[in-house]
């Protein structure tokens, strides 16, 4: 083996080790009975997983998280797809403004956003501080950049403006043009944005913890709280979480690829 190749292989191996060893050890710890006197665990058990999956708090937290993310994303699709479509096709001079607004959440750290939101919404006409709605509102804002990019890029790649022109000249109304021609063609792109947003919200901790914490315990917060109780249990939760996110990422890649192929 040449020296150059040896170098490449060892670098890749080191990086892989660096990335995978913590995961492997976490997994091992989540199925270990005791692991502090020996190099490898003394025995193996699925008890931690059993305990995790039978804890009603986990299931409740999981459902809450699912509700919050699905609700936010559905709301985002319903509002953002028509908005971005209208701005891109009919009011292109406003596109820069929309882009600037939508990119703002990138610039604001979660902690700052949370403190500001709590102060604004703790009294006044819209006192939703401490309820699930403030989390949904904040989540809606934080996934805007991803939804916007995905939807706008799909509109560009399918050349939505020409499609709408063509459809209108063939006698379609603007709504018919959107429904029959634009929407079906941007669906793969929208799905990719949805899954990306889903995995981001699923792992979001700062806003979930600060805005609502234990009052409406989300999966992320639940995980954090149980870490203190047992390392084995929290390892099991981490592995569970990791697998969920992995599945989501796999779906994103799959949708992204099929969207690209369709437009090729």
């Amino acid at each position: 083996m040449k020296a150059g190749k040896l170098f490449h292989v060892s670098v890749v191996t080191l990086v892989m080790l660096y990335l995978f060893v913590p995961l492997a050890v976490t997994f091992l710890y989540s199925i270990a009975t005791d692991w502090y006197r020996t190099f490898l665990p003394e025995g193996y058990t699925l008890n931690w997983y059993r305990e995790m999956l039978t804890d009603p708090r986990l299931l409740e937290a999981l459902w809450r998280t699912l509700f919050v993310t699905v609700f936010t994303i559905v709301l985002s699709i319903l509002l953002m797809v028509p908005t971005i479509f209208i701005v891109t096709v009919y009011f292109s001079k406003w596109e820069r403004l929309l882009q600037a607004i939508v990119m703002l959440p990138y610039a604001i750290p979660g902690v700052v956003a949370a403190v500001g939101l709590i102060r604004i919404y703790s009294d006044g006409p819209l006192a939703i501080s401490g309820t699930v709605w403030i989390v949904i509102g904040a989540y809606f804002i934080s996934i805007l950049p991803f939804m916007y990019q995905g939807i706008r890029n799909s509109l560009r790649t399918v050349d939505a403006i020409t499609l709408v022109d063509a459809a209108e000249l063939l006698g379609a109304s603007r709504i018919q043009a959107f429904r029959h021609v634009v929407l079906p063609n941007i669906m793969p792109g929208v799905m990719a944005s949805v899954l990306l947003s889903f995995s981001i919200l699923f792992g979001e901790f700062v806003l979930a913890n600060l805005l609502i914490g234990g009052q409406y315990e989300l999966l992320q917060v639940y995980l954090m709280r149980r870490m203190d109780e047992s390392g084995h249990l929290s390892s099991a939760i981490v592995v569970f979480y990791f697998v969920l996110i992995l599945i989501l990422s796999g779906l994103i890649l799959k949708f992204g690829r099929s969207a690209k192929e369709e437009n090729a």
């Binding site: 050349d159 020409t162 499609l163 022109d165 063509a166 000249l169 063609n185 369709e262 437009n263």
Partner: peptide
């Protein structure tokens, strides 16, 4: 109208 970029519905 026929467009340069065809404008067919994919």
């Amino acid at each position: 109208m026929v467009f340069q970029s065809y404008g067919l519905f994919p």
